[in-house]
């Protein structure tokens, strides 16, 4: 990977220069702070830079969407976060948002409109697919030739919002063999992190959900488990470690796969 400096303008800077970027990149808390998720954020920005996308981030003006509080049952905290964020977003006149986190995506797309935040929201896999379709981005590398990739559907992208194709279409642009798990698309099993489970110990049971899901994935004999959610990445990575397969099976986000295919 080259180490060219990322170009990441903030909305504040754009405003000072009198510019209105086409799209806001909502980084999300995981994408900002989680060490593993930050790599996804950087990979996606490399793609945005490469395709010369006119974007900006909120930077320090961004705050948690409140999604995780809402799922935990704290509607109060969710609405405080949402109303604060909506003030910032509307203040900048944001029309379109892209995010790498399906939970932010779902929340911004479905739950913010009722509180006065109306934006066109896309998930980064949908955005990358658009870049490829409109030939703003070419994926030509043969880095993944002969590799087996299985895609784990994030619940909040798949079942929650019916997007099963975009990530698969993007993957088709690599030379990899796409293999499906038995449970995929509508019947995909959760990684175990949703509904605020990411932040607590699981309830008593006989197995961890991420281990069960990793078994689903490993049964396809993959070289790479791909997904499109920072929480899924954490859960699946832990699952692969639990199965002691971390030397042979990588867990990667779609953005990382595309960025490395293009040697960005």
């Amino acid at each position: 990977m080259s180490n060219d400096k990322l170009r990441v303008p903030t909305m504040g800077q754009c405003m000072a220069e009198g510019k209105q970027p086409e799209i806001l990149f909502w980084v999300g808390s995981a994408g900002s702070f989680d060490d593993r998720a930050k790599k996804i954020t950087r990979a996606f920005v490399k793609i945005l830079n490469k395709a010369n996308v006119d974007f900006a981030v909120l930077g320090t003006e961004e705050s948690c969407t409140g999604d995780v509080a809402k799922r935990a049952g704290n509607e109060f905290l969710f609405q405080m976060q949402a109303l604060m964020n909506i003030e910032v977003l509307n203040g900048y006149g944001i029309k379109k948002i892209v995010t790498c986190d399906p939970h932010s995506y779902n929340c911004l797309k479905n739950e913010y409109p009722g509180l006065g935040g109306n934006y066109e929201v896309v998930h980064h896999t949908q955005f990358i697919q658009d870049l490829i379709n409109s030939e703003k981005l070419n994926v030509s590398g043969s880095l993944y030739k002969g590799k087996r990739i299985t895609f784990h559907d994030p619940c909040y992208l798949g079942r929650a919002n019916n997007e099963y194709n975009a990530p698969r279409e993007v993957l088709k642009n690599t030379d990899a063999d796409i293999v499906e798990m038995k449970r995929h698309k509508q019947t995909a099993l959760c990684c175990g992190a949703g509904g605020a489970q990411m932040f607590k110990e699981p309830e008593k049971g006989d197995k961890d959900i991420n281990v069960l899901r990793t078994e689903d994935a490993l049964s396809t004999k993959p070289n790479i488990i791909a997904t499109g959610c920072p929480y899924c990445i954490t859960m699946m990575t832990d699952g692969v470690k639990n199965k002691e397969k971390e030397d042979t099976v990588k867990v990667m986000d779609i953005a990382e796969i595309i960025a490395t295919a293009e040697e960005l």
Binding site: S29, S32, E62
Partner: peptide, 22 residues
């Protein structure tokens, strides 16, 4: 997790001013 969101706008105990460090 929820008091982290209340205090620093993220479910983890990180400062909101560090959001762009990545």
């Amino acid at each position: 997790m929820m008091s982290n969101i209340e205090n620093n706008g993220a479910p983890w105990p990180y400062n909101q001013m560090d959001r762009l460090n990545w």
